[in-house]
């Protein structure tokens, strides 16, 4: 099968107020298969939102995509012109933003906000447009489509707002949806409910998805593949079963360890020390060597000297760590 979205050697930097460039993404490459859910894991500041934004070129003004290509349906999105991009955004590739309470227009009825997305891409008549809007709401809010579509965002709960964002994203029948921490601000019950909505849509519409999160537990039984970002670099990438069950990169392992496991462990581990990753995130990067080196518990001498390259452990599992270089 060929990938529907192919990211090749993507480099993105932010221009700091001093004038220098600080890298946010370095040499990120992966392919998204049709109908596949790719989970992207990483801590705050690891470049997850930057990745989501650069795929459709929606980045802050001081961001620079310095190298790479994003192939989608025969075009390189990084070189497409403004009008081509506008045609693709929302119609072929949709974005779902991090904060559902901020991503909706505060004084426009949510039905209208979905209608506007449809109107932006199809020159339908008024009747057909309203009919399509109704169909989208029927899909996402099977219980009470009409009441919700006549509501303003502030009258909806967090979960309902998130569903509206989903409605906007799937309105035009895209083939790829990029969701940036879509459930981070929701409580667990609502979180599960939204994951269920995504799962249904994938089955019904055959969507491919990039699902960004900082919670590895969310990807269990949901994602097909997992990509772990650390300091803007791909630390580990592989099928969900492999990465979640037997992580290889020291960062991935440490990340999974830091989650409390009271449910699964025998005996009482309450109030014991969680094996947290020491040190303060990816912000203070070493100038040379492996980016995880300052916090790594398995570091070796060579780790300080140069950067590890990606190693193929199997056809679908790659890790960037010297431990696996032979």
């Amino acid at each position: 099968m060929i990938a529907i979205l192919e990211i090749q050697d993507l480099h993105v930097s932010y221009r700091s107020s001093g004038g220098g460039l600080c890298p946010a993404l370095t040499s990120v490459s992966f392919g998204l298969m049709p109908g596949e859910i790719m989970g992207v894991l990483g801590e705050s500041g690891s470049g997850k939102s930057t990745l989501a934004g650069s795929l459709v070129r929606l980045l802050p003004a001081n961001a620079r995509i310095t190298r790479g290509a994003v192939q989608f349906e025969g075009t390189d999105l990084l070189r497409a012109n403004a009008d081509e991009l506008r045609q693709i955004r929302g119609r072929r590739i949709s974005l779902i933003f991090q904060e559902p309470s901020l991503a909706l227009h505060p004084t426009m009825r949510v039905g209208e906000q979905v209608r506007q997305v449809l109107a932006a891409h199809d020159s339908l008549g008024k009747g057909a447009l309203n009919e399509q809007t109704r169909q989208v709401f029927d899909q996402v809010f099977p219980e009470e489509p009409d009441r919700i579509s006549h509501s303003y965002p502030h009258q909806l709960s967090g979960g309902q707002r998130q569903r509206v964002l989903i409605a906007q994203a799937i309105a035009c029948g895209p083939s790829v949806v990029i969701a940036d921490e879509p459930t981070a601000s929701l409580d667990p019950t609502t979180q599960m409910e939204i994951l269920g909505v995504f799962r249904n849509l994938r089955e019904k519409l055959g969507l491919a998805m990039i699902f960004i999160t900082h919670n590895p537990a969310l990807l269990c039984g949901f994602a097909d593949r997992v990509l772990v970002l650390y300091a803007g670099k791909v630390a580990e990438c592989g099928s969900a079963e492999t990465v979640l069950a037997s992580p290889r990169h020291p960062y991935t392992k440490a990340l999974f360890h830091s989650i409390p496991t009271v449910f699964d462990r025998p005996g009482n581990t309450r109030k014991t020390k969680l094996p947290a990753i020491l040190g303060d995130s990816a912000r203070s990067l070493p100038i040379r060597g492996c980016p995880f080196e300052p916090r790594c518990t398995e570091k070796m001498d060579i780790c300080k000297e140069r950067e590890p390259a990606a190693v193929n452990l199997s056809a679908s599992h790659t890790v960037s760590c010297f431990k696996y270089e032979s």
């Binding site: 667990p188 019950t189 599960m192 919670n215 537990a217 069950a245 999974f256 989650i259 449910f263 699964d264």
Partner: peptide, 17 residues
């Protein structure tokens, strides 16, 4: 029970245990 059921878990990590 509902709250407990909704907690996402890393159930796929037996080697870690």
């Amino acid at each position: 029970r509902q709250l407990l059921a909704a907690v996402p878990r890393l159930t796929l990590v037996p080697p870690l245990l």
